[in-house]
Simulated scan of single mutants.
Amino acid sequence: MTEPVAPDPNPEATAAMMAKVRRMMLIAGLTTALGIGALLVVIGYRLFKSEGSVVTTATTATLPKGARILSTAVAGDRLVLTLDVGGATEIRTFDAKTLKPTGTLKFAQEP
């Protein structure tokens, strides 16, 4: 048996098909470029809007002799310690990022 031979496509149909393929390739290329551009924008935004890497610090806070820590809490960007110093209550605050003391509040009873 003989195989049927496909006729050669006419030049106009070939040109139309090539134009369609070029148009589809252009659309695919533009879509890819748009996606990569959006990805770069998101990465750049996160790099410039981040607070940077977290720096770990080792700090030793000294307490008065006989003091006890009653409670600890975090309030915003502050670390709050409630202390019992010889029967009197004292609150000390520290910066949460640098652990530097920011304030002391002492409570005393009226005589």
Rank of each mutant, 00 (worst) to 15 (best):
M1P: 00
M1D: 10
E3L: 05
V5G: 11
A6H: 04
A6S: 09
A6W: 07
A6L: 09
A6G: 06
P7D: 15
D8P: 11
D8S: 13
P9M: 15
P9R: 14
N10K: 03
P11E: 09
P11C: 07
E12Q: 12
E12L: 04
A13L: 03
A13V: 02
A13C: 00
A15D: 07
A16D: 06
A16L: 11
A16F: 01
M18G: 02
M18A: 09
M18N: 09
K20C: 05
K20W: 00
R22T: 02
R22D: 09
M24G: 07
M24L: 11
M25D: 13
L26N: 06
I27W: 07
I27D: 11
A28W: 01
L30H: 06
T31G: 14
T31K: 06
T31P: 01
T32I: 11
A33I: 12
A33C: 11
L34T: 10
L34K: 02
G35P: 04
G37W: 09
G37T: 07
L39V: 09
L39F: 12
L40I: 12
L40D: 06
V41T: 02
V42P: 14
V42C: 13
I43F: 08
I43M: 08
G44Y: 13
G44F: 15
R46C: 05
L47P: 10
L47R: 12
S50L: 03
E51M: 10
G52S: 14
S53L: 15
S53Q: 15
S53K: 15
V55I: 15
V55D: 12
T57I: 13
A58N: 08
A58G: 11
T60C: 12
A61T: 09
L63T: 01
L63V: 02
P64R: 06
A67P: 00
R68N: 08
R68K: 14
I69K: 03
L70W: 03
L70R: 09
S71Y: 01
T72C: 02
T72I: 02
T72N: 02
T72E: 03
V74M: 10
G76M: 05
G76R: 09
G76F: 05
R78D: 10
R78A: 11
R78L: 08
L79C: 04
L79P: 01
V80K: 03
T82E: 15
L83V: 00
L83M: 05
D84P: 03
D84Q: 05
V85A: 07
V85S: 07
V85P: 05
G86R: 12
G86E: 14
G86H: 10
G87T: 02
G87P: 00
G87Y: 07
A88I: 02
A88G: 04
A88Q: 07
I91W: 05
T93R: 03
F94W: 00
D95W: 07
A96W: 01
A96F: 05
K100C: 07
P101Q: 06
T102Q: 10
T104D: 04
L105H: 09
K106I: 04
F107V: 06
A108M: 11
Q109P: 03
Q109M: 09
Q109K: 14
Q109L: 12
Q109Y: 12
P111C: 05
P111M: 07
